[in-house]
Amino acid sequence: MFKKLRDQIDNATRQATERAGQDFRWHAAQFQQEAARQGHDIRPQMPTQGMAAQGFQLMNQDPAMVEFMSLPGEEQIRQQGLANQYGQNLRRLHEFGEPATAVVRTLDRTGVTVAAQPQYTSVLDVTRADGTTYRTTVTHLVPDMTFAQYAPGTRHHVRIDRNDPNNVGVFELLP
């Protein structure tokens, strides 16, 4: 009886591992194609068993990640796409945006998570290099581990979209 049960578990584990490998290869190919469209040569590699075990252990300790991983695959991909768009906008702002500083006036959770990252809105008082100031509201992803860095009253280096001054990327915390 025990041997039969053990064999069934082993068989199910092998099948699940194979399906996970197939899913990884499919998602890796999609990621690689999207990266190539953007001019990047990225070759995802299958994680080692130790890396995967450590990753699963860490994921299972984060309730937001557990919730995200329980979503249907299509929703996970949609949210990952949103997170990628957010990151691409930040990268574009960092590279080409107008340097400025900002003071965070509010930090309010929206109740939405994107790829297990909580989304917040913040009211910012932005000061341009020429000394002019304005107030704007931004929506951004703030990982729990960096939440305190965005507390009201904190000052940051920011970058302003030259075509849309309300599109502000919040970067380095200032003393």
Score class of each variant (00 low, 15 high):
K4F: 12
L5T: 03
R6W: 15
R6E: 11
D7N: 11
D10A: 11
N11H: 13
A12E: 08
Q15F: 06
Q15C: 03
A16E: 11
T17K: 08
T17Y: 05
T17W: 02
R19N: 00
A20Q: 07
A20P: 00
G21M: 09
G21V: 02
W26R: 02
A29M: 06
Q30S: 07
F31T: 02
F31V: 01
Q33E: 15
A35L: 05
R37V: 00
R37W: 05
G39L: 02
I42L: 13
I42F: 15
R43Y: 04
Q45V: 12
M46N: 02
A53F: 08
G55S: 10
F56Y: 15
L58R: 15
P63D: 08
V66L: 14
E67L: 04
E67S: 12
M69G: 04
L71C: 05
P72C: 08
E75H: 04
E75C: 01
L82D: 13
L82H: 11
N84Q: 12
Q85I: 02
Q85L: 10
G87P: 01
G87S: 14
R91K: 13
L93S: 02
E95W: 08
E98C: 13
V104C: 10
R105D: 10
R105E: 11
R109K: 14
T110D: 14
G111V: 04
T113I: 02
T113F: 15
A115V: 00
P118T: 01
Q119S: 10
Y120W: 10
V123W: 07
L124I: 05
L124N: 04
D125I: 08
D125S: 10
A129F: 09
D130P: 15
D130F: 13
D130C: 15
D130K: 14
D130G: 13
D130R: 13
T132L: 08
T133N: 09
T137K: 11
T137C: 04
T137P: 04
V138P: 05
H140Q: 13
P143Q: 04
P143N: 02
D144I: 03
M145Q: 07
Q149F: 07
P152S: 12
G153V: 02
H156N: 07
R159E: 02
I160S: 07
N163V: 06
D164M: 03
N166F: 10
V168L: 11
F171W: 13
E172C: 01
E172G: 04
L173V: 11
L173C: 01
L173W: 05
L174N: 06
P175C: 01
P175V: 00
